[in-house]
């Protein structure tokens, strides 16, 4: 194999890719999903590795093929791509096929892990902590402090994953799967889940007490609407109609019986 000498990737290139990754979904489309955003993230790498037109053109066309992932965990695919692009720039054609293959293989893994970790765990349970904080505190300054806390507890793992995904993907290359084991984020998920569940339970107690002190009818409406909407949601599986018909139902109840 005839390997060429290429300019090495610098830390500043990785940081630029990291910053660009915040716009990964900007051109999300039904034909190629994330691919355009993914390619735009890698522009600093293209500029570093491919000063000549033809290899740069091939690079640009290579990354426009279909790609999808969770927007935060896509950084792993970005890191692996940078590592393999280095190989391609050095003249290893084998790396080109490996790149396409590994990106395809990463799609379900990064999607499922990201959805589970962020959309189903860290995001909702961080927000529940925020809901409890805003509900409990009266002062606007303290409420602002709660928002800063929620912003921090969500974005520390968010920024960490975006950055560590890039660096680990780059470091491990094709062995990136070693970084994506099932157990890796389990303890983090557990912490957010238990804190979130505790927060929602405290919130329910405080809300019930508040309504009981104001007017016990409100407690009945709270409980009634939760059960009524649960049935409605089960039947319709539609959020719009569940909210609309719950309000309508209790409006009627209110006018008829209270």
């Amino acid at each position: 194999m005839n390997l060429k000498q290429t300019k090495p990737i610098r830390k500043s290139d990785i940081i630029r890719v990291f910053l660009r990754s915040f716009f990964l979904q900007s051109i999300w489309n039904y034909q190629s999903l994330l691919s355009v955003g993914f390619e735009l993230c890698l522009f600093p790498i293209a500029k570093r590795l491919y000063p000549d037109d033809q290899p740069r053109k091939e690079f640009l066309q290579r990354h426009l093929k279909f790609f999808n992932a969770h927007p935060y965990l896509a950084s792993y695919a970005l890191g692996v791509s940078i590592r393999l692009e280095e190989g391609i720039a050095s003249g290893s054609e084998e790396r080109c096929h490996q790149l396409e293959r590994v990106k395809d293989l990463l799609i379900p893994t990064l999607g499922a892990k990201g959805d589970q970790l962020f959309w189903l765990t860290i995001r909702p349970y961080s927000l529940i902590v925020g809901i409890l904080g805003l509900f409990m505190l009266e002062s606007n300054v303290l409420r602002l402090a709660v928002l800063i806390l929620v912003f921090t507890i969500f974005n520390i793992p968010h920024f960490y994953i975006r950055f560590i995904g890039l660096t680990e993907g780059y470091e491990f290359g094709l062995d990136v799967y070693k970084c994506l084991t099932n157990d890796r984020f389990k303890s983090l998920e557990k912490i957010y889940f238990y804190v979130g569940v505790a927060a929602i339970l405290v919130f329910i107690v405080l809300l019930t007490l508040k309504y009981y002190q104001e007017d016990p009818t409100k407690v009945a409406i709270l409980v009634g609407s939760a059960f009524y909407s649960a049935i409605l949601y089960k039947i319709s599986n539609n959020l719009y109609s569940t909210i609309f018909f719950s309000i309508l139902f209790f409006l009627l109840v209110g006018f008829l019986f209270f």
Binding site: K218, I221, L222, V223, G224, I247
Partner: peptide, 25 residues
């Protein structure tokens, strides 16, 4: 006065949806 109940209804629906999330998990 009747519409005082809209906020409790929305809290009720919101809590139901949140519990769906927890139960599904």
């Amino acid at each position: 006065e009747k519409l005082v109940m809209v906020k409790p209804v929305l809290f009720g629906v919101g809590l139901m949806l949140t519990f769906q999330l927890i139960i599904n998990r």
